[in-house]
Amino acid sequence: MERYDQLRGEEYVEDWPRHSPQDLRRREATILAARLCMNAALTAPVAGGVPQIGAHIVYGQEELEKVAAKMEELAYVNVRWKTRFLNEAVMVRESDVILFLGNNRAHETPLDANCGLCGGPQGCAFLYTRRDSKDGLIDITDKRSATPIKGPLCGARVDDLGYSWASALWMAQTLMVDARPFMSVGLAGQKLGYCPKSAIVVGIPMATVSKNPYQDINIDYHLVNMEKMLDNTRKNFVCNRQTASGINFDYRTQSPKRKEE
């Protein structure tokens, strides 16, 4: 029974200041939720029940910042990506944890069912004739690619990845944790080496704060967001203290008088 005597304590939790001890206690629960979402992803219904999902859980101020910075870098690769990637990089900075989910078979060990998702009437020939293969075995050692993702990929395996991340999202909703699937986060994570065996990766940032970081996004969000607001407040208020009143009296012995005094 002695060990139960040790089971006591207290934990104060508040989501401010960010990354303070009380905030880190809160984030720990989100990381736990991310692990449960990962379990949901791994038990999602997939074709033939074949194991194929790689998962990577990433958290910590520096780690999230690396992902956000990579997204900002990628934002300028394609003009159609820019707004999404920049907005979503802000969301990553406001997240507690990212769950990356990728498919480890879509490029190397397809379903081989001639299903048609990747190339229609050509069936599996579509994929095999566009990848290095020998006797039906695909060689993925050449990682060079003219495109951000090296395709084509097995449509059935990609389909399965969709079921997988959707199950993770279902679990997040059940746990009342805010979460959202993003191509931008997944691509940045893939470029940083997360889900190292996967051909395609989806990133799911998750957070448990009062306002869902992934909804109700204002215009020019990469310029107008909480972090920028706070930073501009810091920048300005130190000046305001001096220019508005601070330099005109000695707080220890003086206080500005009201007119009627």
Binding site: A113, N114, L117, G119, G120, G155, G162, A166, L169
Partner: peptide, 19 residues
């Protein structure tokens, strides 16, 4: 059409349908 489905498919839309 292939054997089960039509194609080719945009992989991102494909995953949204799967979801």
């Amino acid at each position: 059409m292939g054997l089960l489905w039509g194609g080719p498919s945009c992989v991102w839309m494909l995953m949204d349908w799967a979801a």
